[in-house]
Nucleic acid binder design. Structure first.
Length: 553
RNA sequence: GCCUCAGUAGCUCAAUGGAUAGAGCAACAGACUUCUAAUCUGUAGGUUGGGGGUUCGAUUCCCUCCUGGGGUACCA
């Protein structure tokens, strides 16, 4: 159990004990909150419960705080506990405990920060879910990085987590894809054929047509559009997987939209919604009474052509998720889906399911900045920048970092110049350089012929510099950050935390040298241990973000 | 019109209803015979869009107005 949770319990028992002793009157206990004080000088943790109890207890907050503090059980890792106006109870970790965090980090290794709040629970994160009709765009990339980062955090929190990609291999978009390739193919054969505005314009369409021509010559001239569509979607989907793998996103499962038709799930869902009284016919189409759920108008489920609208299979898909029994499902949607995401959940409710297990995470757009100016992109004209192009230009690590460097509610301005800059202005570089600096110490140590395990059994009480202690205190926060990420489904907390961690590391590196002549052997060994732990911790947090931890740069 | 996101330092953004609203960039002033200065130290910078309300306490919750982005298909 993490320290905030233990403090929570401790405060709770202290209040009960104070009440039994007659130091506090009886009252209903509101939720106890343990937080980090704004000013670290006040302590490591803080509890404002006394302020909240003032009214119910009819006592001055300061007196309540004192009564609680007097009944607190002793906890091994705590130093002093103080009561401060207007009524805070402030907790401070003992220095010995903080110094010992080096061992905690090294013992836990790549499991450091592990939580148990998700133990025994099944979770799913769904993201990207682009149609296999073109390259991965930056918007989908953002959702993918956010989703993958959340999935990593959820695994660290104990959830059995799978990352899923909903593969839209049915419907109108695939039809248009097939026709687009077919038309390009016909053009290669010198036939009169033209793309309309609804077709895909990108150069990759012509490339696919050329591939088919190279393989089959003119033999496909009478083949149906589906022949071209099936070929194109398989090729494009394979390319999408490769693109995403380049930024360390690999999916545990691909869910095919087509399977929802093959299994009859789509029509079964419609029928069930109909039986539950949520569907009616109008103008030859089947409508979903979303207004029952507060929508401003009803929505079409099946078009008058008899073809389901995109909504119908999406509902069936989420119905399937509900039946698969996940305890938590996280769905990531870009700004173009902000309106439709709630409609899908309404559908699941119309099917008789509680949808509170689904967390929809929305994010805003990504724009590229080059030379201080926004890069113009247009999906229609096919002049958008793809994930592959971005990886080619800046590499995977900056993409992973910058895509979670803002709250999903804020747009991301991806600065191409900054992303590759080798200086402290570039947060990616700044963070990774902390790991590099640690690695440098061990390289130098080995080059000097010193024993690799010299820090074994080192006297950790020599780690007394405020910069060292501040870094170690920060290291303890990882599990709290992971918990916040999981409970709020907000991955940006990890990006900020990691930056802060680096900002606490570099001052320690400047002030607490290892190999300098004026450092005595005892201190030298303790510090070597400190940097061993620091290196391990940066490897850990970088891994949680899907980034590399380089030895040199 | 309706839905949604945003409005916080010059700029880009943080801040589970708590203490003096924080970082980075930009600006200014300093620090290298260095385990790579690929960094550090310091200064300055605020009516949290306006106005109400709830609360012991509001950037945070509620109402209202203003401004900007996105969405508002029998496309996905």
């Amino acid at each position: 159990m993490s320290i905030p949770h233990e403090l929570n319990t401790a405060v709770s028992t202290a209040i009960t004990a104070a009440q039994e002793a007659g130091d506090l009157p009886p009252f209903d206990l509101p939720p106890i909150i343990i937080e980090r004080p704004r000013d670290p000088a006040l302590g490591d943790y803080s509890c404002p419960i006394a302020l909240r109890l003032a009214k119910a207890a009819r006592m001055a907050p300061l007196k309540i705080a004192a009564a609680i503090a007097a009944h607190l059980p002793t906890l091994p890792y705590l130093g002093e506990t103080a009561v401060a106006p207007p009524g805070f109870i402030n907790f401070r970790l003992s220095e010995k405990y903080v110094q010992g965090l080096t061992d905690s980090i090294l013992d836990a290794g790549m499991e450091y920060g592990r939580l148990h709040i998700g133990d025994g629970q099944k979770a799913q994160v769904e993201c990207v879910s682009a149609n296999p009709t073109g390259p991965i765009t930056l918007g989908r990339t953002r959702g993918g990085v956010m989703g993958d980062t959340l999935a990593r955090a959820m695994k660290a929190a104990g959830y059995h987590t799978e990352l899923e990609y909903y593969y839209n291999d049915a419907g109108r978009q695939i039809t248009m894809l097939g026709e687009s390739v077919q038309i390009r193919y016909q053009q290669l054969l010198g036939q009169e054929a033209k793309l309309t505005d609804d077709h895909y314009q990108g150069a990759y369409i012509a490339d696919l047509a050329q591939e088919l021509y190279d393989q089959h010559g003119g033999d496909l001239i009478n083949a149906p559009a589906t022949t071209f569509g099936d070929y194109a979607k398989d090729k494009i989907s394979a390319a999408q997987k490769i693109s995403l793998a380049r930024i360390n996103i690999t999916f545990d499962s691909y869910f095919n939209e087509r399977s929802l038709y093959d299994s009859g799930k789509v029509w079964e869902a419609l029928e069930t919604m109909n039986q539950n009284g949520y569907v009616y016919k109008k103008d030859g189409a089947s409508w979903f009474k979303t207004t029952i759920f507060g929508d401003d108008k009803d929505r079409v489920l099946v078009k008058s052509t008899g073809e389901p609208s995109y909504r119908m299979p999406d509902i069936a898909y989420h119905w399937d998720k509900a039946e698969r029994g996940f305890d938590v499902v996280v769905d990531l949607f870009g700004p173009d889906h902000h309106a439709t995401a709630p409609q899908v959940l309404m559908g699941v409710q119309a099917l008789g399911y509680d949808t509170s297990f689904v967390h929809t995470v929305l994010h805003q757009i990504v724009s590229l900045i080059r030379d201080g100016r926004q890069v113009k992109m247009s999906t229609r004209r096919g002049t958008y920048v793809t994930l592959d192009e971005l990886v080619d230009e800046v590499g995977a690590d900056p993409i992973r970092y910058f895509m979670i460097s803002r709250s999903g509610n804020s747009p991301v301005d991806f600065n191409l110049d900054l992303a590759v800059e080798k200086s402290d202005k570039n947060p990616v570089y700044y963070i990774q350089n902390a790991h590099v600096r640690c690695a440098g110490i061990f390289r130098k140590w080995a080059a000097a012929g010193l024993p690799a395990d010299a820090d074994k059994g080192a006297d950790l009480s020599l780690l007394t510099h405020p910069n060292e202690l501040a870094f170690l205190r920060k290291s303890l926060e990882l599990s709290e950050v992971l918990e916040k990420m999981v409970t709020t489904a907000e991955p940006h907390h990890l990006a900020f935390y990691t930056y802060d961690l680096a900002a606490m590391f570099h001052p320690a590196y400047e002030t607490c040298r290892v190999l300098h002549n004026d450092v005595d052997d005892e201190t030298r060994h303790a510090r070597l241990h400190f940097y061993r732990a620091a290196k391990q911790l940066f490897a850990r947090v970088l891994d949680l973000m899907g980034m590399s931890a380089p030895e040199t740069m």
